[in-house]
Design a protein around this nucleic acid. Sequence first.
RNA 1: GACCCCAUCGUCUAGCCUGGUCAGGACACGAGCUUUUCAAGCUCGCAGCGCGGGUUCAAAUCCCGCUGGGGUCGCCA
Length: 420
Amino acid sequence: MVRVRFAPSPTGYLHIGGARTALFNWMYARSQGGKFILRIEDTDRERSQKEYFNEILKSMEWLGLNWDEFYKQSDRFELYRQYAQKLLDEGKAYKDGEAIILKVTKQIVKIYDLIRDEIQVDTETIKDQVLMKSDGSPTYSFACVVDDSLMQISHVIRGEDHISNTPKQIMIYEALGFKIPKFAHLPLILDPEGGRLSKRFGAVAVSEYKKEGFLPEAIVNYLMLLGWSPGNNQEMVLLDSAVKKFSIKKINKAGAAFSMDKLKWLNAQYIKQLPVDQLIDSLIPFLKEKGYIHENYDRKKLEDIVRLYQGRISTLVDFLDWAGFLFIDDFVVDEQAKSKYLSQDHTKTFRLLSERLRQIKDFNTASAEEVFRNLVTELGVKAGDLVHPVRVALTGKEVGPGLFETMVVLGKEKTVQRLS
RNA sequence: GACCCCAUCGUCUAGCCUGGUCAGGACACGAGCUUUUCAAGCUCGCAGCGCGGGUUCAAAUCCCGCUGGGGUCGCCA
């Protein structure tokens, strides 16, 4: 039975590297009909915070990485103490003050890694390992080994940064007489320049991506493509089909640089193929928070607006930026657009257009366009000479969807009003 | 520094195991089409096996070295 775990420490938010580790563990469990366990490694009471704990759980749920079993190391201190005592009794560990330390014997430790094959390490360079700290709490490696054994973890899938911990942990397994699980060390996610992923690189927390308007499906899709490929030149991969094709052996060995461009592209693809109703539902919290809509809003009208922008936004927040002028009257007018198209006085033409539009009975794209084209012909100017200034007057921007579609979603009343 | 891991377009990758297809796809970038603008979409294009040795009739693919990058060296996890 395959049993894997994701073991984050609540000393920080769930970041994209951790999310990918969780994802790969989850995919492996689901692909093998095994169990996915979430274990919170909160042995460091000083640095662990409830806030991080909550954020990690929420982000996991948001991404759709449901777990079958849940544990918290802070509930298990007695267990670690017992096993440390056992090693003490057997003479495999010794005390230094209150701390309990494992004697490291000289040997060549062989690690069998599913991704990298065999790795050999000479323990000559490894010093005796602290198992229990002076304050009575277990060290990371010790708690990790005890838990992985007791929880019958079959495969330890974690970041490459743990490779050098592995020989130390194998010695603990051996001292305890525990069965050694299989290991798979994932390549690390690098920042866009190929360096270490750090706070210096803006958004690292999963919750940050949620705030920026990314869809969980897109994040998950992007993350699985970092170090793994479903084959067949496929880019958009739903979790279900990825699970069917998933194989640890096919995971890459080299680190992967994070590309915001590609993530955004994927997010745009997911937004495009989302049923409008679902897109509206995803947009509503953002619109409410921004104060663009309140409890009572016209869903039909919102649907028209969303349809107009669905194909041109790459994040949910983009929608707020592009369509804000439809919800509020004191929208920001782009300075460049203003100087480019509104530097000369259009008052008279705008008034004329406004008046003609006001008289339309059935205000739709066809009727608005007809009125507009007739006026342009009458004035003897090119359509574009009026289209752009009008767009800026109505939307505050020099770019956007077709002008007449824009007028219709804005509504006759506001269109007329903004032109006069 | 020591130890460990890694190396295909700028980036993510397919191909490597089981040597022999113009090294394929995607993002980004460039051009064109479309068009009232910008996106989107469609078409086309640019661009890569880090270097040096082997092995072989034949090497991106197997072996060695170099270089480069990354990771770890905590009573943090």
